[in-house]
Amino acid sequence: MENFVTQMQGVPLNHYIIFCSIIFAIGVTGVLIRRNVIIIMMSIELMLNAVNLLLAAFSVYRGDASGQVFVFFIMALAAAEVAVGLAIIIMVYRNTKSVDIESLSKLRW
């Protein structure tokens, strides 16, 4: 275990931060520019996992396990979110025969 931690710390923390930022940015961009609801869901997952990775990295570097506990919470939450989100998407598809986000523009003034 000691060994593993040393190995992990071998990679500088900056690299983790930059890497996670890139993944997070990809997620945000995906959410913003794609119109397929499933792709948007996947982009959200990407953002969540970028944060997860960053939490795990900080946790290791600080020698504090509570960061990793957070990760578990977020994973559970993400699973639940996907379940609900996919269910909504299926219902939307059944009604509109489309998974285009623009087809959901009925709720407005």
Binding site: V28, V31, L32, R35, E102, L104, S105, K106, R108, W109
Partner: peptide, 17 residues
Amino acid sequence: IRLLQSGHVGFYIIMMV
């Protein structure tokens, strides 16, 4: 102000970001 609520989810997301 209610005109902002256009019903386009993409617009909401952009506003959120």
